[in-house]
């Protein structure tokens, strides 16, 4: 089980959280103008990296707030957590932990 650093509540066990999948997937501002290919990219295509991954989490059974996190998908270790709408301090291209 992961130990997750909620920006609001501190370190809490994973069972209190839900993972919301890849972070920073922006909905096209004008969907009517988007091609089918781009729309399918938005809906379905994901980074799925073997390495550092930016993703959303919600502290469902705690403060109830969403936040973002960088996590290494090979070791499952969190690099950092940061607020929704913000940018991470480290970059997703940095080498694995």
């Amino acid at each position: 089980m992961l130990l997750i650093d909620c920006p609001c509540c501190g370190l809490r066990p994973e069972t209190e959280f839900r993972c919301g999948g890849q972070a920073h997937v922006a909905r096209p501002a004008t969907p009517a103008d988007v091609t089918d290919k781009d729309w399918s990219e938005y809906l379905f295509v994901r980074e799925n990296p073997r390495g550092v991954h930016a993703e959303r989490w919600i502290h469902q059974h705690g403060c109830g707030r969403w936040f973002n996190a960088l996590r290494d998908t090979v070791s499952d270790r969190f690099v950092e957590t940061y607020p929704m709408g913000g940018d991470p301090k480290s970059t997703t291209t940095e080498t694995r932990l």
Partner: peptide
């Protein structure tokens, strides 16, 4: 597990 991972192991829960 609920998150993307290549670790070939999952949570005990």
């Amino acid at each position: 597990d609920q998150y993307v991972s290549y670790s070939q192991q999952g949570g005990l829960h």
